[in-house]
Design a protein around this nucleic acid. Sequence first.
DNA 1: CGCACCCCTGAGAGCGCTCTCACCGCAAGG
DNA 2: CCTTGCGGTGAGAGCGCTCTCAGGGGTGCG
Lengths: 328, 328
Amino acid sequence: MTMPPTRRITLEDVAKAAGVSRATASRVISGSGPASPDVRDRVRTAVRHLGYQPDQVARSLASGTGFRLVIAIVGTTPRVLDDPYVDRAVAAAAETASPYGVGVSLQWVPRAAPRLDKLADDRSVRGVVLINTTEATLAAVPAALHRRVASIGIGSSRVPSFDVDNAAGSSAIVHHLYASGRRRIAMVTGPPWLPCAWRSVRSYQNLMRSTGLPVRLVAGDFSAAGGQQAMRTVLRRWPDTDAVFAINDATALGAIAVLRESGHRVPDDVAVAGFDDIPFAELSAPALTTASHPVGQIVSAAATAVLEGSRVAPAAIFPSTLVRRASA
Amino acid sequence: MTMPPTRRITLEDVAKAAGVSRATASRVISGSGPASPDVRDRVRTAVRHLGYQPDQVARSLASGTGFRLVIAIVGTTPRVLDDPYVDRAVAAAAETASPYGVGVSLQWVPRAAPRLDKLADDRSVRGVVLINTTEATLAAVPAALHRRVASIGIGSSRVPSFDVDNAAGSSAIVHHLYASGRRRIAMVTGPPWLPCAWRSVRSYQNLMRSTGLPVRLVAGDFSAAGGQQAMRTVLRRWPDTDAVFAINDATALGAIAVLRESGHRVPDDVAVAGFDDIPFAELSAPALTTASHPVGQIVSAAATAVLEGSRVAPAAIFPSTLVRRASA
DNA sequence: CGCACCCCTGAGAGCGCTCTCACCGCAAGG
DNA sequence: CCTTGCGGTGAGAGCGCTCTCAGGGGTGCG
């Protein structure tokens, strides 16, 4: 009943079985260097026969290249995880990294500097995709991470960035609200220190100013709870508000809940629009008008950039399209 | 402008700075073995002074212990990620593992056997928490993972399990529906091959049978989309249904959306209840009646079990409480 | 025929750490 | 006085892999 204490199958075993040296076996397996067809075959057969599985850790120690892609969620609160945005990001990253033999780790990075340094000289880390970046975070990205890091949202000269076209998407939404006759449009933004979405705010402000409409800004925190609180503030400050543009869907859903509670009809009294088009957006009552956010594509591009190093476009903006539903 | 190619600070450096051997430095740092107070101090000072950061990979190679906890999402479709359930799980696991110096990786495990073997002899893996387990998966858990694995949901003699009290929670819900006068109660379950929630189904069946009410079961897939589809089936087969118990909140939210579309009032015509109490549950219209699911506690317990090995209770069931809102 | 290649291969030195083992000195016991 | 025993220490052998480097055997060219 007791198993023999099965020893790990090592490269040495493969080499021996194939009748070659460890070095040659390594060359064949990792494809780094020449090998005669005959030898190649013998090694491959041995690998298959023995069920050899290279030891990533040892490989990493020897070569210095990591085997996992870290998705670093930068932020003061882990609350951002509530946003189904992250799910899509992880799924896409995992899919992209898989062919590289790289796994994906999700990591919450409370304050940037020390933790990023840690990531930088962790041998097991192949690269880092930053989510929710602030400018302070970008500044804290250690040089050792150069060419192995990408950011979802804002970037810098050293950190390539990948993002949805916030300006265009938001502009489409605000214009849609305006076009449908709304004139007292409020916006619930994210936390003020997160520049991820400043462009959205600017789009909103631009339209307001160019049409001479009042700017009504309240900060949320990307979460539904934050949206609820912010919506209450909006109603208190500007009870005649007839439309709300929320920085993301979770916020919008929170806003709708508060409006409903307080007896406002959506969209008849107050129109509400979000951003991201998360799965629950179309399930809300009324179904949420929002702007699509190709999170999968974006994260995938970022992951590719990190894994391919410089062989790939350093940054990109992905288009967002207006998703018209019932709420606005 | 160009940095000197800063060499990594190794244990060797620390040892030299402290005037001791590498072995002694190692002993002090990992606390494995005796050391005189004087030496201990000198080593600690050197560590702080040099900013030494042990190399997890090398450590792992040498000692054979891993440095990451893998949350394995077992399933045929990655769709389960849509469920905000996973967010809470990851957050809790990360928090629990952090003091152990262990990071958390999320991994999607399509088919169990080969991938679990891979995890089992990946040196970097300290342990595995299985989510969404089937019995086939449990059977495929390799012996090498013994004492390093836990399952959220069903378990086996070799795999400790941690779960919410599905039976009690579901029972509370079904009884609540019954007590509020519903008599034609349908249930939307999960995928038939996933036993995670069989107990819930059984609770439902028990009440139906004991009261002589008809059993109306339709399978969903834990997702909102699946819930929508299943709800349509329910309405087609049993148009007089006056209550729906959904296996989880995402499913329930999907069901509510379909009911609304098709002109049924919730809860007046059809009451709907879910399970899990995800963040969006209280935001839906009407707010969702559901049963709480202490995912955080559960995953945390599982993680602890994995990290502590046998020093901890091998399994546990966590209580669920009925969350009465507007939908039922 | 000699020389310069080039293709392929093996020996061996690490990567940074842990851990076993042997050793040294000193206090306690016979 | 010699034995034990024990807290403290260092030398050194790996963990499994990669990679440099030197060499061996062909071919092409002068």
